[in-house]
Structure formats: structure tokens, C-alpha cells
Design a protein around this nucleic acid. Structure first.
Length: 725
RNA sequence: GGGCGGGUAGCUCAAUUGGCAGAGCAACGGCCUUACACGCCGUAGGUCACAGGUUCAAGCCCUGUCCCGCCUACCA
């Protein structure tokens, strides 16, 4: 901090000045522009008559803050305003107080607004302050630092500013100076910490000259040295940088870094040294007093990327980690912190502190409202973590994050995060229970079955998706992909199918392969999940076959293209579709899955039949223990049966005496109607010559295949429905 | 005043480069199938705010309108 301050002071970028700043009368400190929150509030427009000396004329002036008139030192009109031009150079008399106010012409005045005449209060309004400088106007404080009226306000002195407003308006009314009061909605600035209305106030403070720093920051961003995600944040960054104003650094509060400036009590020398001085370098006096104020905390925060790593020394840490890769933070402190880190980083290190700034949304409450202490709708993350676990909470956060401004974090999602953790815990238990006697390094022969090939293929695709998703900052999709893969593919299908092999005897090749693949998939999934759920993944990983000491430093899974197996994927897809169709039919008819059933499967496609014959009779038993499957080119299905059609595959489950024919017919009719609708839509497309001509060939191809499939399905369903009539 | 984001299932939110709208919760029906009831299986639920336009094709692109939110600004 000290080095940075001195460096910037020596370069003339930090200076001390008597200037108008934002003052909080309650906290009794200066605050920066960023710490003032503006809001439209209902107020009044007071029209007040200012008599012109030596004439019968008067200027009507409209103001929202009548109490500030006690600090007026001029009245301004537009120099080209024909109504008032002739008054320029004359003198107005401040009502009640009687102070003489020069009438000046200034282009700042908006002829259209209010009455077109402006009272000028240099000490309590930023614009008036500027006008005051331009016209060398006197400065009269109407208020003290605590928000009470000053000595200069005569009988109002000591009154609180709002109370004074009332009393003053009352008196103006009585003495005939108040013309009228209008309802007026205007923007009011309040201190973000305490909600007190900010008082613009002239006082001596330390400032940082921002223009040159901002120019460098803009240039760095333009050159792509630092990127913002989402992109719109870059625009916001430029917008702010282009309109930047000098930064008031001084704070009159008790905490923070004290400003490293000493003032010689004898010769008024201002001393800004690296080491605490004992005497004045100019006059040698030992009577030095340090500036009592402290720095805005964002000053030292802005130095964080390098001051934490040994700067200004040439520390090894600094060499390694400056600049770093990504800064992750909320968009609300883009100006407060991020921008200042960039500006001060360039200034002190000659380089931006990070390459990418990822700005995430702010967590809103359940109703989507911004959380704020004053609104009392804050949610304590620690409480959530205690209730749902840190990993579950983290998963929910990542799962829900999107490029919006606010994200609600509904409790049911956090709860689902915990349930996901629980699911993983349990599937790991299942795998471990069956890992007894397993030695991955035994290098015994393996015999991958369809499910093995499928899950490994899916796993390697998932690695690809996750890796890319993380690189592109699409965190929510990453979480969703992991959720679907682990829960629905690994647990719901693979783990269930694997159970069939776990009853095989110790040492059997099937059992060994199942152990090998299950542990491999789980171990790899944990590594993919680790950035989101660090604790549970480490714990489970330690109990699975793995390489390395800790998952924290384990290598990131790599895609093995050879294991991506489209053939296994489509074969498995067929199996899953058929099983789904069977389950769905029985489910809709209320037939429990453990009933003895015969499942008759018919397909005219020999390749399809081969896949089904090879796997379905075995795999179906993972889900329906007592099912018997028969697969043939043609089957003769009985009337009393549950039926389903999956593309080319017909499924019939005889349920003599168990089935309500009417219900089954209705069920199939519904499916038929849906299929007919789909077919018609597809057909319409394919009959449109413009579609055939202009659409991408692969899309046309896809539609053609779809038509064929749907035609098949419709025809088959029709037959079943007819049979049931 | 300027700028930005959003309006999609009952609720909270997704949807890469335009190519048949998804998830979680809630709802409904069935399961204590020895990893998990924080679970399993199944079902239902959408005029993608509104009006035009571009396109073979629009939640997505363009124009306008209506709501909601945010950032920013020295109209007293």
C-alpha cells in the first residue's frame, strides 16, 4: 500500500484538493461515487420568489432542496434566455437571509427545466460547485458535517437539515416568498451502508486522478489482454472507464490503512515518504502530524493481485502467478474492485493482473429479489451448507448459474444437490461392496460386454463435453451433464445391468470385467466432478483403485477416441428403448414388474434381431426378474396382450385374463394418434419442394428416415388397435 | 435521459452455430426389487409475453408494442 501510494503521488496521480465530494452526515465520512445508491423518490418542487434588488421584478426559482438556499451565493440564468437576459449583472436578494446574490449567465442552465432560473449553492451541489469555480463565486456552507445547519444560517443554525426544510418552507410561505409546491419525483442519493441521504459537501480530501489510468485499462481490454465473460460486461467496463471521475480516497472512519502523509507543522510541507519520517526534510522540524484519515478499502483491494505475493519485491510467487488466468467474481463489483485491480495492476506491474474475468450472477432470494441487508431477505450460505452439505450446496450453485444478473437459489435445488451427493455415495458403496478381491493391476483378461462398451463410450464423450464446457465457462451445462451421466446412465442403467455379473464366482472373467469397468467409470467420474464437489469426491476416490495421492492433484481425465463406440451406443440405445417400452406398457396397465411374463419380440431386420437376441434376454432380467423373452422374425401375438412398437420392433406381452382390452385399445390409440400426427408433419415437410431443395442434406436425410420409421410404427399400431376392436 | 438483461410446464430456471421445446420441484399412478425412500418405475403438463417480418424451417435473427428487473446519468 505504502509503495503504491508514494509511487502514484510522485507521478502526480494522487493529489489533495478542496473539492465537492459525497458526504455521509451520519457516518461523517467522505464516500466515493460508487458508494452512493441513487433511487427515484417522491419529493416536491418548491417555487420560491427571489426579489431583484432595485426593481419590482423577481426571479422564481424552483428547487427540490429549499434548505440549501441558505448557502446560495448566486442566481444563474441561461445567457441567451430572452426572459431573463436583462437581469444578468443585477443582484437578487436571498429571501429571509437578505444576502445579495449576483445574477450570472451560464450555459449550464436548462431553459426548459423548472423556471429556467437556478439558485447556485457551490458548497452543496456538484454542478453549482463547478459554476462557482467558473464565476469565482463565494462559498457558503449551509450545513455542518453532521447534517445540522451551520452558523451562516442564522436562526436556523443547529437544526437538522430536514427539520430546517420544514421550518424554512413555513416561513417562506408566511412571508410570501413561496409561490407554490409541486409534486416532483427525483433521484435521491443515499449512502449504501446506512441509507442516509448523501450531502454533497466541499472539503479537503485526497484524490486519485483516474483518466490516465482508465485510458491504459481501456487500451488493454481493446487489445484483448483481458476478456470479460459474459461479453456484455466488457461494454459496461468501457462505459464506466470512459466516464470515469477522480476517486476520492480519503475516509474519515476508524478502520483501514491510514493515509501515509505527514504535514510539517512549521513549514506546511507535505511529506509522502516510504518510511515514517522523524523530521521535516525541508525545515528539519520534528513537529510532524500524520493525516488522520484512512484510505478507501478498495485502494488496497485494488493492489491485491500483486501485493499479496510479495510486491514490491521481486518475489518468485509474483513471477509465477502474475498475471494469473481467471478472476471469478460477481458483476456487482466490476467497478469497485475488478476495474481498479486492472488499473492499478497496469500502473504498478505494467501488465493486467488476469486474462479473463468471469462475472457471475448474484444469488437472489426465493422470489427473485435482490438480496440486501436492508430488505432483510439475505440467505446465509453457511446455514444452507450445514443443512444440505457443502458439496450439495456447491453443486446447486453451479447447476443453476446462468448468464443472467440474478439467480434464485430455490431450496429444492439445494436439496437435490444433497440427494445427488447421497446417490453418489450409495453407488460407490455398491461398487465397493463388489470390489472385494479385485486387483486392477493383475492385468487379467477382460471381456467387455455391450454395457461396458456403451458406458465407456459415453464416459469418453462426457469427458469431452465437460472439458469443453469448463473451458467455455458453461458451468451449468457441465453440472447437468455430470448429473445425467452419473445418475441416469451410470446408476440407473449400467450399475443395474452390472448386478447380473456380480453374482458370478470370484475370479470369473465377467465379474472381473465388471469390477474393472465399474471402478474405472466411477473413479473417472469423481475426477470430473471434483471441481464442483471436492469433499465427497476425495473421500470416495481414496477408497477406489486410483493413481496418485489426492484427487486434488490427480490428472484430469483424457478422452480416448478409441473407446468412443457408436456401434455399442446404438445397440445399447435399441436395448434401452425396448426395455423402456416394455416398462412403460406394463406401467400404464398397472402390471408390476416382478410378475411372470413372456415377452414376444418381432423384428424384420436381421441385424436388429441379432442385437436383441444377444443382449435382451439377459439384460431384461436386471429389471424384470421373471421375464422370458422370445425374439423372432414374426410372432403371432394373442389378443389379450400389452403391446408396444419401437420403430421396427414390435413387442407383445400376453397377459391372459389380466388385461382390460378396452383400456389397452385406448392406450394404443393414443400412441397411434401421436404417431400419425408426427408422420403428417414430417410428410408435409418432405412434400415441400423448397424444403428438399434448400434444407441441409443431412436434415432432409434425417426427415426421410423419420418418415420411414413413423410409417412403420403407424402401420403396426393400426394393426394392433384393429385387432383389439 | 441513455444502456443492458429478462418474460418458455403450476413454481424456479435451461436450450451450443436457426433443424421435432428440456431439467429440478410440485402433481398423478405403481413399487420397501438386499447401493440408495435423500430411492426406483411409470404418467400427465407448453399458442416459447404480444403483433408483424426474414427463412424451406424461428424460443433463437429483424422491426414494433406491453410488462418486470438492473446498470448508468450533474436536469436544479
Amino acid at each position: 500500500m505504502r509503495t503504491a501510494f508514494v509511487k502514484l503521488y510522485d507521478k502526480g496521480l494522487i493529489y489533495r484538493d478542496n473539492y465537492i465530494i459525497n458526504w455521509c452526515p451520519r457516518c461523517q465520512t467522505a464516500v466515493s461515487d460508487l458508494e452512493v445508491e441513487h433511487q427515484e423518490e417522491a419529493g416536491h418542487f418548491y417555487h420560491i420568489r427571489y426579489p431583484i434588488q432595485g426593481t419590482d421584478e423577481a426571479l422564481i426559482i424552483a428547487t427540490t432542496r429549499p434548505e440549501t438556499m441558505l448557502g446560495d451565493t448566486a442566481v444563474a440564468v441561461h445567457p441567451e434566455d430572452e426572459r431573463y437576459q436583462h437581469l444578468i449583472g443585477k443582484t437578487a436578494v436571498l429571501p429571509i437571509v437578505g444576502r445579495e446574490l449576483p445574477i450570472i449567465g451560464d450555459e449550464y442552465v436548462d431553459r426548459e427545466f423548472g423556471t429556467g432560473a437556478l439558485k447556485v449553492t457551490p458548497c452543496h451541489d456538484p454542478n453549482d460547485f463547478e459554476i462557482g469555480i467558473r464565476h469565482r463565486l463565494a462559498q457558503v456552507y449551509a450545513m455542518n458535517k453532521d447534517g445540522t445547519m451551520s452558523e451562516a444560517t442564522g436562526k436556523f443554525r443547529g437544526m437538522e437539515r430536514m427539520a430546517c426544510r420544514e421550518a424554512l418552507v413555513e416561513e417562506l410561505k408566511e412571508r410570501g416568498f413561496l409561490i407554490r409546491i409541486e409534486e416532483h419525483s427525483h433521484s435521491v442519493g443515499r449512502h449504501e451502508r446506512c441509507g442516509t441521504v448523501i450531502e454533497p459537501f466541499v472539503s479537503q480530501q485526497w484524490f486519485m486522478r483516474m483518466k490516465p489510468l482508465a485510458e491504459n485499462a481501456i487500451e488493454a481490454a481493446k487489445k484483448g489482454e483481458v476478456k470479460f465473460i459474459p461479453e456484455r460486461e466488457e461494454k459496461r467496463f468501457y462505459e464506466w472507464m470512459h466516464n470515469i471521475r477522480d476517486w476520492c480516497l480519503s475516509r474519515q472512519i476508524w478502520w483501514g490503512h491510514r493515509i501515509p502523509v505527514w504535514y510539517c507543522q512549521d513549514c506546511d510541507e507535505v511529506i509522502v515518504p516510504l518510511e515514517d519520517p522523524s523530521e521535516c526534510p525541508r525545515c528539519g522540524s520534528a513537529r510532524l502530524e500524520r493525516d488522520p484519515d484512512v484510505l478507501d478499502t478498495w485502494f488496497s483491494s485494488g493492489l491485491w493481485p500483486f501485493s499479496t505475493m510479495g510486491w514490491p519485491d521481486e518475489a518468485p510467487l509474483l513471477k509465477t502467478f502474475y498475471p494469473t488466468s481467471v478472476l471469478v467474481t460477481g458483476w456487482d463489483i466490476l467497478f469497485f474492485w475488478v476495474s481498479r485491480m486492472i488499473m492499478l495492476g497496469i500502473e504498478c506491474m505494467d501488465e493486467v493482473p488476469f486474462r479473463t474475468v468471469y462475472l457471475h450472477p448474484l444469488v437472489a432470494d426465493e422470489k427473485g429479489q435482490k438480496m440486501s441487508k436492508s430488505r432483510g431477505n439475505t440467505v446465509d450460505p453457511i446455514m444452507s451448507m450445514e443443512k444440505y452439505g457443502t458439496d450439495g450446496f456447491r453443486f446447486a450453485l453451479i447447476w443453476l448459474v446462468s448468464p443472467t444478473i440474478f439467480m434464485p437459489l430455490p431450496e429444492d435445488r439445494i436439496s437435490k444437490g444433497r440427494e445427488f451427493a447421497n446417490k453418489i455415495w450409495n453407488v460407490a458403496r455398491l461398487v465397493r461392496m463388489n470390489l472385494e478381491g479385485f486387483d486392477r493391476d493383475a492385468l487379467r483378461p477382460l471381456d467387455f460386454n455391450l454395457a461396458d462398451r456403451w458406458i465407456r463410450s459415453r464416459y469418453h464423450r462426457v469427458i469431452q463435453e465437460i472439458t469443453q464446457g469448463l473451458e467455455e465457462f458453461r458451468f451449468s451445462e457441465v453440472a447437468q451433464t455430470l448429473y445425467d451421466f452419473i445418475w441416469h446412465e451410470f446408476c440407473d442403467w449400467y450399475a443395474e445391468l452390472n448386478k447380473l455379473r456380480w453374482s458370478e464366482e470370484e475370479g470369473a472373467i465377467g465379474r472381473y470385467t465388471a469390477q474393472y469397468v465399474a471402478s474405472e467409470m466411477l473413479e473417472g467420474s469423481l475426477r470430473l466432478l471434483h471441481p464442483i464437489m471436492p469433499f465427497i469426491t476425495e473421500e470416495l476416490w481414496q477408497h477406489l483403485p486410483h493413481e496418485g495421492e489426492s484427487i486434488v492433484i490427480a490428472s484430469w481425465p483424457e478422452v480416448d477416441e478409441n473407446l468412443i463406440d457408436p456401434e455399442a451406443e446404438s445397440a445399447m440405445q435399441l436395448i434401452m428403448d425396448v426395455i423402456d417400452a416394455i416398462r412403460s406398457s406394463l406401467g400404464e396397465l398397472g402390471i408390476p414388474a416382478n410378475r411372470d411374463v413372456h415377452i414376444l419380440i418381432q423384428s424384420s431386420d436381421p441385424a436388429q434381431r441379432a442385437v436383441l437376441e444377444a443382449h435382451l434376454p439377459i439384460y431384461i432380467r436386471a429389471f424384470m426378474r421373471n421375464a422370458q423373452v422370445k425374439i423372432a422374425e414374426t410372432i403371432s401375438a394373442p389378443k389379450e396382450a400389452a403391446s408396444a412398437v419401437v420403430g421396427n420392433v414390435e413387442i407383445s406381452i400376453p397377459l391372459i385374463g389380466l388385461i382390460d382390452i378396452d383400456a389397452e385399445r385406448q392406450r394404443l390409440t393414443k400412441k397411434l394418434n401421436k404417431a400419425i400426427q408426427d408422420l403428417e408433419r414430417t410428410d408435409r415437410m418432405l412434400q415441400n419442394p423448397a424444403f428438399l431443395e434448400r434444407a441441409k442434406p443431412e436434415v432432409v436425410e434425417q426427415r426421410k428416415n423419420q418418415k420411414e420409421e413413423l410409417t412403420n410404427e403407424v402401420e403396426k399400431l393400426k394393426r394392433y388397435v384393429r385387432m383389439l376392436e
